[in-house]
Amino acid sequence: MEHGVLVPPVYSPIPPAIHPRHEHFDRRTAAWAQEFGIGSNALREKLIGHEIGTFAARILPDGDEEVIALLADFVLWLFGVDDGHCEEGELGTDPKELVPELSRLLRIAQNPQVPMLTDDPLAAGLRDLRRRMELHGTPAQLARWVDALREYFLSVVWEASHRSKGTVPDLNDYTLMRLYDGATSVVMPLLEMGRGYELQPHERDDTAVRAAAEMAYFIITWDNDLFSYHKESRAQQWYLNVVRVLEHHHGMDPAQAMETAVAQRDRVMCLFLRLQARLSATGSPQLRQYLDSLAAFIRAAQDWGISSRRYTTPEDPADLPTAFRDTPTDDSTEPLDIPAVSWWWDTVPEGPAPAASHRGSALDGNRPAEVPHLAVPERVPAGRHRHTYA
């Protein structure tokens, strides 16, 4: 049975946190969306109801408030592109037309002064986002943001090519595409801006650090696939997520595919914890902040994913969990049989994951932890860093 598949509680050893003014960011982002007319009226109202400001407040629970607002506006803008242009718009099934449109937007991100798309609301919103990023980011961070935006645009064109033909990529291609079309990497520069640091290139470009970031992208997007499966599978249109990939190419029924996807993300979460512990032991304070940001992003996406109207779809309720597991369903140290990411396991020495004690964790024994949706984070005095696993 394709519909009504239970999404089990997923493994989440990362403690929740949220900025105490999260409702303020929801209101502020709603006003920004209205000011720039992001998407159609119907899409805009829907996006405003998804509490994207709260999502940003979870990602940066101790961040600069102006950057949290910027992050929230950017995430809403990304949904305007993804939902409006790609999933629900005509361009989403016409990669030949989608490429030039996204290329024009990329040019505006590179140079907001160019006289292009002068009457386009998404372009106007992007110009505003870029202007505000210049107030908080370094030139190198802005350059990385543009590079990540290019990766995101390339991946959604790849997805559009499948949508136009109604095809389903195999698991390896899907994994590679999903690392970028989930728009995870494109928000990373804002996480640095929000906490007032810049990770130096020799650490950022280290193979193990890059692997840690990609593991976070994988966990976030796999979780998103689990939480959005109900909404997508009932939309009466072409959709793509890991559950469907496993059904299509591996002959699984939805329940088997769901169980397999959960095991995959659990195995990667265990690997992420081991790598984070190793890198935190020897890395700079900036690297520890970066790793902490990755962990916060993972947990933020989980809490938002099971509580936002975007995925709970109250008009047709999704069977989503209200709690998280404190033990993985799969803690194997063997690499996943996915060539695009199997190299991650080479970055972590053999051996069990180190035991971690999480300050403020809601986890208790072997029972699923109830989700504290409005937990207030510990405030960090200036000059100190809050480390999840250090």
Rank of each mutant, 00 (worst) to 15 (best):
A356D: 08
E378C: 11
L176C: 04
T29Q: 13
A375H: 14
S332V: 09
H387L: 07
G383M: 09
E65M: 04
R325T: 02
L98E: 05
Q34R: 10
T29C: 15
D119M: 02
L6N: 06
E334G: 04
V371F: 07
E214V: 00
H136F: 08
A33S: 11
A17F: 07
D319Y: 09
D119T: 10
D292G: 12
R204K: 10
L142M: 14
I108E: 05
W343M: 05
A42R: 01
L122M: 04
P20H: 12
E370H: 07
L320P: 02
A17E: 13
K96V: 15
R27G: 15
Y311P: 00
G196N: 08
D364F: 12
P139L: 13
T312W: 08
Q113Y: 10
Q289P: 04
Q286T: 14
P254Q: 06
V156N: 04
D205W: 03
A281I: 12
L191Q: 01
D73G: 06
H387D: 14
A296Y: 08
R28K: 14
N224C: 04
I18M: 10
R234K: 10
A42I: 06
P189F: 12
A257S: 13
F74P: 01
I108R: 05
D319H: 11
P285I: 05
A235I: 05
D64C: 09
T329G: 09
A216Q: 08
R163K: 11
W158L: 11
A356T: 10
D206C: 10
F55V: 03
G196S: 13
A255P: 01
L287P: 04
P317Y: 02
A318E: 11
L43H: 04
W145P: 00
A30Y: 04
F36V: 09
A390C: 15
V268W: 01
E66D: 13
R267F: 06
G194F: 02
Y239I: 01
R386W: 14
E232F: 06
H162V: 07
W222I: 06
M252T: 06
P121V: 07
E134T: 11
A42P: 00
E134V: 03
L6Y: 12
Q256N: 10
T322L: 11
G53D: 09
S103T: 14
V75T: 06
S185P: 12
D253E: 14
P16G: 04
N111A: 12
E192K: 00
E259Q: 14
H19C: 15
D223H: 10
Y290W: 15
T184Q: 05
A143P: 02
Q236F: 07
R21V: 12
S307K: 02
R299N: 11
V245Y: 01
I298G: 01
Y229L: 13
L320K: 01
D173T: 15
H19T: 02
H248S: 13
S103G: 12
D62S: 09
Q302I: 05
T118W: 12
W238I: 06
I52E: 03
G37T: 13
V5C: 13
T329S: 09
Q264R: 00
F324V: 14
D206H: 09
R379W: 15
N241A: 11
T312C: 05
T322A: 12
L171P: 01
R267N: 14
Q286C: 14
P339R: 13
T207G: 13
A42T: 14
E65Y: 09
G365W: 04
C270A: 14
R309T: 15
R210Q: 15
R178M: 06
A42D: 13
P95C: 15
A31G: 07
V209D: 06
E134L: 07
